[in-house]
Design a protein around this nucleic acid. Structure first.
Lengths: 240, 240
DNA sequence: GCTCAAAGTTTGATGACTCAAAGTGTACAC
DNA sequence: GTGTACACTTTGAGTCATCAAACTTTGAGC
């Protein structure tokens, strides 16, 4: 049984190395993600390496071994099932559940995890659209597009939000940009670094490209997209 | 915010001193309840005393201050609400939930606790019949009788089970002696140290007086009982 | 009153995790 | 190729909770 601290490091390394092109995470990033100094992260790296959970060499970056990866997916499963429970059953807000799950995930036994999973109907995605690893560690694979890369005039469906910060999530909720919602990319303003979206409610929402990078979408199923040459009105509103 | 270890000590001291006539708990008992050596318990006693959570003097026993008592009731509330949730919502067996709640109780934030409480409909008793302290620490007071003290021929209703061990709970479940069930005390055999009970299913169940001491009952509501010649001692529980 | 077992305390050590601060390696700019 | 900024590592120390083992106190029995 890994300690709580070990679980947190594994989770951080998993997500950081998934993002990185080399598949390796840097110590400074790991330390920041876990919330410790880099020195602490280095000594933990040695411990994890001795336990064969990570591949680590001095000054060389850190990455998970298969064993470490399995452990990380197990934690992620607990985290995301707990988040789903908090939103679906207890009706907490999606902007609050990340921090709550962060604490609870370490106290969930396999028995309780199974019972939660059953109670929720074996959900495959959590409230932020993150895929929930299966009991054996399998992840649903999807091909998603960053909203920041969606072309003007495209109809897309919000599928996943990478940014877990409450502020971001509250903004998205307020403007109606929640998981499953279909939106139209009205305009992009590379100069201003913003993107304008039309929500189902008819509102025009502007957000920065940077913010749009953490919103993942899929092309809308019944897309009746007009030819890309269609000019689009240029209007802006609140930006994130 | 007390640490997890501190919470466990407070809970142990609360239950032990509630049982003791002097209202004080001995170090050896506390250590056994928490699962540490007596030396460890002694040094923790000093720490708790410094934090004004307990009253403690060398060789003098230990008891909770009002502040410590409030903290203990808060933990008990979390524990019992979690147990109720595990049985009611997740359908776990009442013989399993104690240990699970033991881990989860430390990870429940006030927000999640409130949400759970609301989801469960503000229960006043947990699956073992233990009263759930209110948000302000109030405890429902009931006058219960140990089954071992119930007179022959009495009709009683099972109200609370003090023994949290899985073995005990599975026995009670198997024989139909669960919370709320009305039974008839058929015979007592002081010589053999046993007591015989008639369950609603019509079965005759025998149990030792010792086992019957941890089953608390109330006189059955529609009881045409004879004048209560039976005493009604107040009893408290062994472990939460 | 003395003795002795049981209860309780003290001491010294360990393991897990952490930090601050000093020291070392790497790589990019020029 | 030299400088230097940044990433990273090492070191030394601290906290928390724990144990084993030596020691002290208490109180019950004689």
């Amino acid at each position: 049984m890994p300690t709580e601290a070990v679980e947190n490091y594994l989770k951080a390394i998993y997500t950081l190395s998934a993002e990185s092109p080399t598949g390796e995470a840097g110590m400074t990033r790991v330390a920041a993600a876990v919330g410790v100094t880099t020195g602490t992260a280095t000594s933990m790296a040695k411990k994890l390496s001795a336990a064969k959970l990570v591949k680590y060499e001095r000054f060389g970056g850190i990455s998970l071994t298969p064993k470490g990866s399995r452990a990380a997916l197990d934690i992620l499963r607990r985290h995301r099932i707990v988040e789903t429970f908090l939103v679906q059953t207890l009706k907490l807000d999606w902007s609050q559940v990340h921090d709550e799950a962060e604490r609870l995930e370490h106290a969930i036994s396999p028995r309780v995890l199974d019972a939660l999973d059953r109670h929720l109907g074996h959900p495959r995605f959590d409230p932020h659209g993150d895929p929930i690893p299966g009991a054996a560690g399998e992840l649903a694979e999807r091909t998603l597009l960053a909203l920041s890369d969606a072309g003007e005039g495209t109809r897309v469906r919000v599928a996943q939000v990478l940014d877990q910060r409450g502020e971001t999530l509250r903004f998205l909720e307020r403007t109606g940009l929640t998981i499953g919602v279909e939106i139209l990319v009205e305009a992009r303003e590379p100069g201003a670094g913003t993107i304008s979206l039309r929500t189902p409610a008819g509102d025009l929402v502007a957000m920065s490209e940077h913010a749009a990078r953490s919103v993942l979408v899929q092309p809308a199923p019944a897309a009746k997209a007009r030819p890309a040459s269609t000019p689009t009105p240029r209007r802006r509103r609140a930006s994130s």
